[in-house]
Amino acid sequence: MAQLSLSLLLLLLAAAALSPSPTAARFTCNAKARATTCQALISYTPPPNATTTLGDVRTLFQLRSHRALLASNALPLSTPQTAPAPSPVRVRLPCLCSGGAGATFQRPTYKVRAGDTLDAVARGVFAGLVTYRDIAAANNVSDPNRVAVGQELWVPLPCSCDPVGGLPVVHLTYVVPPGSSVAGIAQEYGATEEIILGLNRLTDAKSLLAGQVLDVPLRVCSSAISSTAIDRNLCVPNASYILTANNCITCGCSSSTWQLDCQPTQGIASSVCPVAKCGDLFLGNTSVATSPASPCEGTACLYAGYTNSTSFAILTNLTSSSMCDAAGMSPAAQPSHSSASRLGLPTRWRWSELIVGIHIVLLCHGLLRRD
């Protein structure tokens, strides 16, 4: 019986050794002459048996702004910190690209409690977004099972700042749920299987593992922001918005036009924010021509960034726009459509919905916001 038990134990150990398991994620992040910074998104899944509030998420990741957390998850600005956090919840953090790889810059940190091990911190506290090996290496810990109570640890979550297919994106750090497929993830986030496989160095779709940390690129909207504006590198993916210009402006991303849609932030005192207008036209509004001779012509007041060199000012750009498609159809007569085009696939732009004269998509590198 003892011999049988020993044989069974050896068999189980051998099986465990041969079983595939997720390894530490290392996202490619090609800094050129110097380190690059950008904003990345982290997809965090709270513990299933606990009621995690938005305030808990903000504390865990040391977010300086509750509004930024709401914006990353497209939640109304009136949502309180005591509200339950969605699962998963998106967290926007600064990413530092150096030495060919990216990691979240300075945050989050974690203070060791009694009974903690690095593996428990990595898997239990941060939901498998990082491994104990990553935490040990980042903090020069020689024995992952022996960390001092009260010790402050930097938790380097993987991220990236690289463009994809020559276009700027926001990279999402994503933990694969059980039962997922590469095709399903690509469909959900508007990418292609080829891009997901290539970014994550997967040989084929069958090699995907539950619990694996993936780099998922999210397409961002193009904008008319001036190259001289402070927020010239603003990147907004679909299903989120960003507050900019000292929170005076809210910019969202339309998945139909893929143009940045910016409006004055509701609830901010007018005494704090300067009026954003293009002549008599307020920011975000469109003036449609009433002349029968030119029924398709109009003008739009677009957000062009903000400056603070001499005084705080919100820039706008009055731009001509076409309200009809190439066949002369008005917006009301045009057929409805849905869904966003995918990264890596040719995009058929709806010219009736695009604003003529917008700037080329701006590169997203170099922005290190503080919220």
Rank of each mutant, 00 (worst) to 15 (best):
285 N>I: 04
297 E>L: 08
327 A>F: 12
273 C>N: 05
276 A>Q: 10
280 D>R: 11
248 C>Q: 11
283 L>H: 02
266 Q>P: 03
305 G>Y: 01
302 L>M: 15
332 A>G: 12
344 G>K: 00
240 S>V: 01
253 C>W: 10
293 A>R: 15
330 S>G: 12
275 V>G: 04
332 A>C: 07
287 S>H: 04
343 L>M: 03
250 T>A: 08
349 W>R: 13
334 Q>R: 15
259 Q>K: 07
329 M>P: 00
352 S>L: 01
301 C>Q: 01
251 C>G: 06
282 F>R: 07
302 L>H: 09
332 A>F: 14
287 S>D: 03
318 L>N: 14
269 A>C: 05
322 S>I: 02
279 G>E: 05
353 E>V: 00
293 A>V: 09
320 S>N: 09
302 L>G: 08
244 T>S: 03
319 T>P: 06
307 T>P: 00
294 S>K: 12
276 A>G: 07
281 L>Q: 14
354 L>P: 00
246 N>F: 11
272 V>Y: 07
260 L>D: 03
278 C>Y: 13
348 R>E: 08
324 C>K: 05
309 S>Y: 00
349 W>L: 10
260 L>V: 11
244 T>A: 07
339 S>L: 09
305 G>N: 03
298 G>A: 02
320 S>R: 12
336 S>K: 15
329 M>C: 04
344 G>R: 05
341 S>V: 00
316 T>M: 00
272 V>K: 13
